[in-house]
Design a protein around this nucleic acid. Structure first.
Lengths: 141, 141
DNA sequence: TCCTAGATTGGAATTATTCTTGATATCGCT
DNA sequence: AGCGATATCAAGAATAATTCCAATCTAGGA
């Protein structure tokens, strides 16, 4: 069992974030994302958050998610035209979509990798954000 | 000037595609995409196609685009939650979104690149599709 | 030519998300 | 503690892209 992960999941925000007022709703939305890192949709987040905040509205969940994204505490992930999903892993990383199970796995870059190593970037391009999505199957191991 | 490109753009379908009935609508949708490779949305495709087929409906444009995608003649490209865009480049490639101009550039992989060299894939993962999107700025050269 | 499967159309329906508005809560200051 | 300014919340309405539906149409084969 990964205690490091578990401990983080049990807390609310890792540290204060400048300019972000920490309300019970935002705290709980964040807590829920940390508690189960399965890339839930806003709807799923709403269901989970309602366990503790039964009166929270879906609109508020959307607001909280947007705020947390804007402050860099979580990331919004899009697959095709499906509903957005949310992910508390703010490291640069990609996602692997297992078609069979519908699960999503974070994909880390191998250490020391540089985008320009494998992509033919336009000269002078300054990259601000990367989104890498793989779709496929996990062969039975 | 790139004659190869220009010639392809002027034609309709490059070759017959098994199981695909080539209707005037599909032909024109394809022609429009080849004629201007700027990753238009379904709406933009609709406007362009109407020049020659004034009665074509948006639903038909969606149908044609879907069919062409299903047959591997074009690709559907999604950025965030924006409308889907369509692209006649069916090679494996990524996209660079220039925030300033709103333009989209195809990004090719460097030759001989293997994704597994750069990404920490889950063991036994079989990749069926890759989507790489970069957002950033093109520095004034 | 006639039949049939598939294609097209226009409009209605769907769905995720955003917007609006009024009510609440919080912050900084005295 | 009290007050005004500001931010947040909630509920439902509104939006926008896309899909669905039912009714024609069309092309190609028997």
């Amino acid at each position: 069992m990964n205690h490091r992960l578990h401990d983080r999941a049990a807390n609310s925000l890792p540290e204060a974030c400048p300019g972000l007022r920490m309300t019970p709703q935002r705290q709980e939305v964040y807590r829920v994302l940390m508690g189960r890192r399965d890339h839930p949709t806003a709807n799923e987040v709403h269901s989970r958050v309602k366990k503790r905040l039964p009166n929270i509205s879906l609109a508020t969940v959307y607001n909280c998610l947007e705020t947390l994204v804007d402050h860099g505490l979580i990331r919004q992930v899009n697959f095709e035209r499906e509903s957005s999903r949310y992910c508390p892993n703010v490291n640069e990383h990609g996602h692997f979509h297992d078609a069979a199970s519908g699960t999503i796995h974070d994909i880390e870059f191998k250490p020391g990798v540089n985008l320009a190593d494998f992509l033919d970037l336009p000269p002078g391009a300054v990259i601000e954000d990367i989104e890498i999505t793989l779709r496929g199957k996990l062969a039975a191991s």
